[in-house]
Amino acid sequence: MDYGWLMFCILLASWLGVELIAKIPSQLHTPLMSGTNAISGITLIGALVALAHTHEPLTEFLGYLGVFFSIINVFGGYWVTDRMLKMFNNKNNRK
């Protein structure tokens, strides 16, 4: 993968991020934040890749540490977001 493509990916994804968030009702700010926070746990993939290609006790330990922390982020983040959104949804259904 060459650097031009990397740059292209970054710019495109950044522009998407801006476009997606630009108009959002303020009551969704918290769920949005915790939802995107869960997505930032995607670094779990990085930890898994790094862990798969390492053969030293120290780096292996760091790899497991990375997996451990990011998976807390992923599961906790998604669950807590769902908990919040459920409260919003309940009200919609009742109407």
Binding site: M1, L6, C9, I10, A13, S14, W15, L16, G17, V18, L20, I21, A22, H29, L32, M33, T36, N37, I39, S40, I42, T43, I45, G46, V49, A50
Partner: peptide
């Protein structure tokens, strides 16, 4: 790591957080 999904997802979170 040259991992595309990490780059894309990270960027999305980065910019959306910045806008917020």
């Amino acid at each position: 790591l040259f991992n595309k999904v990490l780059i894309v997802a990270g960027c999305l979170v980065g910019t959306s957080g910045l806008i917020l």
